[in-house]
Amino acid sequence: MKNFLQVIAFSLLMIGFFAAFSNFGIPEIQPAPPPVQEKLDLGAMTPERFITLGEKLFNGKGTCALCHNAVGGRAPPLDRVATLASERLADSRYQGGANDVQGYLVESLVDPSAYVVAGFGKAGSGDTESPMPNAAAGSIGLSEVEVNAVVAYLQDLAGTEVTVEIPKGTEGEATGPEPVTGTARTALASAEEIIDRFGCVACHKLAGKGGEIGPDLTQIGASKDASYLRQAILDPAAEIVEGYPPIMPVTYEVELYAGELELLVQYLAALK
């Protein structure tokens, strides 16, 4: 009986030691909770927010940064990928069906084996097969909107133009424990409201009324097209009209929702 108790006491002591070490000997790290599926108001999406969403997906749900980082060397770095895309499309090893940068980037997420950067293929496949999973399926499972957001982020990262369509109005699914950064307001419904809200006429003349700090916009649609106007609003410093000071705020990229921007651009382009 004595042996019996001694053996039990000894076993308990050892188990206790292992448990104590696991509880107190190492730092207790709380694992991240499983990703929650949550609705996101895509109507309130600006290009800036869309890129931020892409960045968050890149580092979070998309798990891209696990391999595509500067230290791991497991996957090619993506900071310049948008500029390299055209080069890769022309490469004889390219297997996919895309014909522009955006198409290439989207394809690289959903069909990684279409083009494998030299040295990063699965061992033994001679760089024809990528070890990367389809980011739109399986455990990553990015939605179409999310794939676009990541592409937008990659384009912005390389400093190239963001060509993906920013979703407007429709609801989609995106993921994240907290909503996308920034305070949300209800999207404005007409160009007049937008002009009113953002005080454009403080500097610009519209229908003959308004300030003279910026160029007259009364008949702006006659001389400029929509894409010029879009750029002029998002990045005013890109081209300054002769004789005007470069003082237009750069904040509209952040403040205007994509839907509003489109409304405004179409409205202005129609002023002939």
Binding site: F18, P31, P34
Partner: peptide, 26 residues
């Protein structure tokens, strides 16, 4: 319960299991 439990929690479950197992074995 879909979350991953912490190591300490897992260690406690494992310890409880080991005690049960050793009791049965003895």
């Amino acid at each position: 319960d879909a979350y991953t439990p912490t190591l300490g929690y897992a260690a406690n479950v494992v310890s409880a299991g080991t005690i049960l197992f050793m009791a049965m074995v003895i």
